[in-house]
Amino acid sequence: MIRVDVRPEPIDVAAELAAHDAGGHGASASFIGRVRGDDGLVELFLDHHPVLTARGLDELAAQAAARWRLGALTLIHRVGAMAPGDTIVLVLASSPHRAEALDATEYLIDRLKTDVMLWKRETFADGRAAWVEQRDGDHARAERWD
């Protein structure tokens, strides 16, 4: 079962894992991205497109499901204002065997960083705010899967 969502509400990792694993799977891999509180960061804001962000996640999930034999796939991205420690993104992939679950999880998080319409803005305790710049390394990692 493929579950994809974009939401402003907090991501409850335990509840999502329970829903994901309801069918029982041989191997489940996960990636949980959280807001880091580095350099006095007080807020991370995620901007998104009201239609195309969800569509981009749907397409990414479909590509992973076509590439690997997955019993279940969960891809949830939070948007809006977040605080340090909050979960930004959750990827869960399950397969009969670990290699496919692990590869699919890594693929999804790598491609997410270059293919989906999401933008991070950091606000710091001293009032500074800045949009995060894309890193060259993100493209290198995403292109490994081409």
Partner: peptide
């Protein structure tokens, strides 16, 4: 840019698209 729901390059023809989205390189994840 995104045109008709897909990310496109600068040489993409706009044609009769309803929406063109313009934005910086994405930084999700």
């Amino acid at each position: 840019a995104a045109l008709g729901g897909a990310m496109v390059g600068a040489d993409a023809v706009i044609g009769d698209a309803e929406e063109v989205a313009l934005f910086p390189p994405v930084t999700g994840g």
